[in-house]
Design a protein around this nucleic acid. Structure first.
Lengths: 338, 338
DNA sequence: GCCGTTCATCGATACGCATCGACGATCAAC
DNA sequence: GTTGATCGTCGATGCGTATCGATGAACGGC
């Protein structure tokens, strides 16, 4: 099963190579008879057009570059739905996905764009101030950001509305009569990387707490995992409050924290409240099912891909910041209102 | 910042285009002086070679195709370490990774190979009998399987030694004096897909139990998640045994099952034993830390990539089945020996 | 029964790079 | 001072496709 060229197809169909090309692209009228013969020849040879040649001639690769935060931080847990959705949507539009790890930094973007490896780039896991943005702005290839940097000027951004997420969480705790709030911070390495959403959430949470006249304390574990959760639980236990409401924006801290609280005899939903920022699926499977504000990786990804393809059709589309609204779902970890 | 060609570099350096090419590839001797001028020009223009043109001329893409099981089953949890490691190794060898979702089936492989989108393909999540193998065998592009199908003839396979994993788990339970074993099966959708490793593990577990003269019962939940785990726990509770040993090959069933057992007052490590098949990281973070036989996604991926690059250098390398040996780590969920 | 159209197809070219053969220059050996 | 060999560079060609201009055929209007 060697590989054929459009010339082989042309010969078999008794037409010229250019006709084969026009049959495939539909960019010129072809008689039904000819089209049939060509398609038949394509079928018989199981012909597939050479991607390199096509890219070279057409200046289009039908490939989407995806820059994912492998190898940088630890928090890759929630990444899969993004990748999965992006790959899926790409496929429905006859595109493929080229994976680039973020540890390459701006070099990765330069490579994707400079070598014409893809038609557009999706950039994830932005830092609040990210040096890749300068490169992204100076590149022919359109770039879509998943995340909102401090200065999004001229960039196409899609993300969850983390500020609204924070307001939802704080609002719910206020509405259910809590008199004191705690925000579990991210571990040091995440904070140090200054990821854009971490700050967006924290700032909005603080603002919302102020607006409700509630004291908010930030408790930041230095590490991930069980030990860190135990430490955080201890500090929560030390807080004097009639009704304590805890907000946990780091998805994979939620379950360990619930455990740690339980282990201290502090039962979420009975002795204090916990609201997590995590997908509905994860929240429903947590033990116990945790009241959550939803991350919406699939929606965000879909929206990013819509933006991307719109941009491929019309490069002059004005940049905008496109925020997906999360929703709050009440499960079992928030005290009922008084 | 438009994009330059090697001709631009040549002009700036005052040499011919072919010389630029030879500087970059090193395939012919170039004087130091000339090389310096060329490299300088490349640098000044931030020149990057066009991937399509390079692929067309050289018949090499420096891209690895990765077929991942998105969109088919549910069990994508453990996928990330594979993707991450493969992408990382690829980068160290100056290759990129093109993601293809398995829901395309054999068409995906045909596309990757036919269009010359990549130099080699890694195929994950094989079924025991997989129709993609026929395509894979008839394609110019080398294919590496992660997994071992029923008929691996002529295929390069890399995977965890699931049979050894089963023997380790059963052996440990036998050595610690258990008189009865239960194997938690995979949910119906997974079993129905007849994934190769599911069968390999189950068969070996049964054989090992026989060898130790221990009765082994298979308990198969029909679904994922909490409810299914609760059902499995109920059935475990109904088993009459002095010392019951439970083997859980589905990683993401382990934690829910531990919960469900606890909820029934059956404490793993006190009232019965549980050994899970999951990564050391996941086992250590489980609640309680669970005695495990290790999945080794990183080792498996690394080995697969070694095989891949060996194959790119020498296509005649004989196919082999390369199994990674798992290890057992004792934590807190197995009863101490009598 | 001639001319302007429209429709379907062909031939030629460009895309940017790798690679092969050729060629001039340098140098050692005699 | 001539001959070979080696080294460094150049020009030309091909990779497989998309696309542009051209061409020929069919067709309708007068």
């Amino acid at each position: 099963m060697s590989t054929f060229t459009s010339k082989d197809v042309a010969r078999l169909a008794g037409v010229s190579q250019s006709t084969v090309s026009y049959v495939m692209s539909g960019k010129r009228p072809i008689s039904d008879e000819t089209r049939r013969r060509v398609l038949d020849a394509i079928d018989r040879l199981t012909y597939e057009p050479n991607a390199g040649a096509r890219a070279l001639a057409s200046q289009r690769t039908t490939v989407v570059g995806l820059v994912v935060p492998f190898g940088v931080g630890v928090d890759t847990t929630g990444l899969l739905p993004f990748i999965e959705t992006i790959a899926g949507v790409a496929r429905t539009r006859d595109h493929d996905v080229l994976l680039v790890t973020a540890d390459e930094g701006s070099a990765g973007i330069r490579r994707l764009a400079g070598r014409s490896l893809c038609d557009a780039i999706i950039l994830m896991d932005l830092q609040t101030v990210d040096d890749r943005l300068a490169v992204a702005a100076n590149v022919r290839t359109p770039v879509i950001l998943i995340g909102v940097p401090a200065d999004p000027h001229g960039m196409h951004c899609v993300d969850l509305d983390f500020a609204e997420a924070a307001r939802l969480a704080v609002g719910e705790l206020a509405a259910t009569g809590h008199d004191r709030l705690a925000l579990i911070g991210h571990p040091a390495d995440i904070v140090h990387r200054d990821l854009n959403y971490v700050r967006r959430f924290a700032d909005a949470a603080r603002a919302a707490a102020d607006a409700h006249g509630l004291p908010l304390e930030v408790i930041a574990p230095v590490e991930w995992g069980r030990e860190a959760a135990r430490g955080a639980a201890a500090r929560l236990a030390a807080i004097e409050a009639r009704r304590l409401g805890v907000v946990v924006p780091a998805s994979n801290t939620v379950q360990p924290l619930l455990h740690a609280l339980n282990a201290r005899g502090l039962v979420p939903g009975r002795d204090l409240s916990v609201i997590g920022l995590l997908t509905d699926a994860a929240a429903a499977e947590a033990e116990p099912p945790v009241t959550n504000v939803s991350l919406e990786p699939r929606d965000v990804s879909r929206r990013a891909m819509e933006t991307l393809f719109r941009l491929l059709e019309d490069r002059t589309a004005p940049p905008r910041i496109d925020l997906i609204t999360p929703k709050l779902t009440r499960r079992q970890t928030v005290l009922p209102g008084p």
